[in-house]
């Protein structure tokens, strides 16, 4: 039986979809059979982040309403043996599926896949409730900003009252230089405030923009620091103990000279 994991945040724009794409692909790189489910009905994006936007025929609403079989709606990613995407519908709204239907869908997918990674919409309304309905574990994504941390705290409370105990935290877009100067909250600061377990820290990395432009998750890029962080996170999800990466590795004097030379 597979495991159903939901990626949430409350606030929009902190990197839920990027995290979903990278965790899903990271697990597939490890040889797991996975499916990513986009539940952001009306604002689907996981398909473009994954570079699979041209292959959609059916979507999640078609599946739950019985317009097609589940297998017909699953898009197989040709780059990996074991990776699939169930896209959201773009022309319907969040009330097109119910919590009950989402639970049934998750139960079905669990029999086929090792991991089901659900991309949750922003907000705390029906879309959020649908996304978490069939989940067994939750990941909360935040950035080191007051607005994102505040919303993450609210989401942690809502998850726990829905029976998803002990959600795990991903702190995205950390900038080590700003943390060093005292101008950005550190991971320790954020963990202290939210009082949840840390799943991983992802440095702010331009390579994520490039990989999103191309529709190839950063985990596929061996040189990407954010990709490395997400590969570590994927390994932790499967139960491996991987130490946190050294965020400052790129700020040594050699790197500084390199950057200075390439700039001029």
């Amino acid at each position: 039986m597979g495991e159903v994991l939901v990626i949430t945040s409350g606030k929009g724009g902190v990197g839920k979809t990027t995290a979903t794409a990278n965790i899903g692909t990271g697990l597939a790189l490890m040889g797991k059979k996975i499916v990513m489910v986009d539940t952001d009905i009306g604002l689907r994006n996981l398909d473009v982040v994954m570079g699979l936007e041209n292959r959609i025929v059916y979507d999640i609403v078609d599946v739950v309403q019985g317009n097609c079989r589940l297998k017909q709606a699953l898009i197989k990613d040709k780059r990996f043996e074991n990776m699939y995407l169930l896209p959201a519908a773009q022309t319907k709204d969040k009330t097109a599926v119910s919590e009950e239907q989402m639970k049934n869908l998750s139960d079905n997918l669990k029999t086929e896949f090792d991991y089901i990674v659900i991309d949750c919409p922003a907000g705390i309304e029906q879309g959020f409730k649908n996304a978490i309905a069939g989940a067994e574990k939750a990941v909360v994504v935040t950035t080191p900003e007051v607005s994102a941390v505040r919303d993450a705290d609210r989401i942690v409370g809502l998850l726990e009252s829905s029976g998803l105990r002990e959600p795990k935290l991903i702190i995205n877009r950390i900038r080590p230089q700003m943390v060093k100067k005292g101008d950005m909250m550190s991971m320790e600061d954020i963990i202290e405030i939210l009082a949840v377990d840390l799943l991983g820290v992802v440095p702010d990395d331009e390579s994520v923009v490039v990989s999103t432009n191309r529709g190839e998750p950063a985990v596929m890029d061996k040189a990407s620091r954010a990709g490395q962080a997400f590969r570590n996170i994927s390994q932790r999800i499967t139960g491996e103990e991987i130490p946190l990466m050294n965020l400052e590795a790129n700020s040594g004097w050699l790197e500084k000279i390199k950057r200075w030379v390439t700039k001029s």
Binding site: E145, V146, R150, D153, V179, G182, M185, S186
Partner: peptide
């Protein structure tokens, strides 16, 4: 006045009310 300390303190207070 490291601005992250301002952020932390403001968050701490707002979360008391939110919670």
């Amino acid at each position: 006045g490291a601005s992250k300390d301002v952020a932390k303190e403001r968050l701490r207070l707002v979360l008391v009310h939110d919670r």
